[in-house]
């Protein structure tokens, strides 16, 4: 257990020292969202109508951009070899890396999402809903993303391949994430959607570390 937490602590420390990486993905998230009013026009009702989808798609893309950070740096400097032969089982190793990724790369997006939601004229119920939906649904993004990141680790054009592998698997999260927000805006119960998102996160919690662990072992050989 000590190894598990020391690994998370190290990754958090690294992210804090290299704060620019987190700032960059936040900037990306903001810019993508700014593009939409510029693209579809500033009419408030239209923006409010597309806001849930825009927020979720931008969050998916911002998350996708940070996925290579999960393993790539450790792979390049040889740390990954040392982590793999260390005391942690592979699945827990992946889980620790995923938790650190979620805390450093996804949580900041969720924190500024309400501000961006307001700028898109989303109703206040929707703002709360989008925050909750992101909180519950986004672990799936990190967990499934870890599988893709492990499979494409060390490849020359891994980034493009990673998006092709991972984005189709993100679709259910997108659909139910948006549905939760739309339900909240329409004053309908959003609990069923959140439960489904939570269920997907739990499923990904089982499958993701196993598959990513197997992919890691393979990539190091």
């Amino acid at each position: 257990m000590k190894a598990f937490f020391s690994l998370i602590a190290r990754d958090l420390k690294l992210a804090a020292r290299q704060g620019s990486a987190v700032a960059l993905s936040l900037c990306f998230f903001v810019i993508v969202i700014v593009l939409f009013p510029l693209g579809v026009g500033p009419e408030m009702t239209v923006l409010a109508r597309i806001a849930p989808g825009v927020l979720w798609v931008a969050a998916l893309l911002a998350c996708l951009l940070t996925l290579d950070r999960i393993f790539q740096a450790d792979y390049e400097d040889g740390s990954l070899d040392q982590l793999v032969i260390g005391p942690l089982p592979l699945s827990f190793l992946v889980l620790a890396k995923v938790i650190a990724h979620w805390l450093t790369s996804v949580l900041p997006l969720i924190i500024i999402a309400p501000v961006l939601a307001l700028s898109l004229n989303l109703a206040s119920d929707g703002v709360i809903a989008v925050t909750f939906a992101l909180l519950i649904g986004s672990p799936t993004l990190s967990l499934i993303g870890a599988v893709g990141a492990a499979l494409t680790m060390g490849m020359r054009r891994g980034g493009v391949l990673l998006s092709l592998l991972v984005l189709p698997l993100y679709i259910p999260v997108l659909i139910f994430g948006v549905a939760a927000v739309e339900a909240a805006v329409a004053m309908l119960p959003m609990a069923p959607h959140l439960l489904l998102l939570g269920g997907m996160s739990l499923g990904a919690l089982v499958v993701g570390p196993l598959a990513a662990g197997a992919a890691l072992r393979l990539a190091l050989e």
């Binding site: 190290r10 420390k13 690294l14 020292r17 290299q18 400097d77 040889g78 740390s79 070899d81 040392q82 032969i85 260390g86 005391p87």
Partner: peptide, 16 residues
């Protein structure tokens, strides 16, 4: 946990 492996890579984080 019975062995150490020292390879060609330096296994260091430059910011630490």
């Amino acid at each position: 946990g019975q062995y150490h492996y020292i390879g060609h890579q330096e296994v260091l984080k430059p910011v630490l």
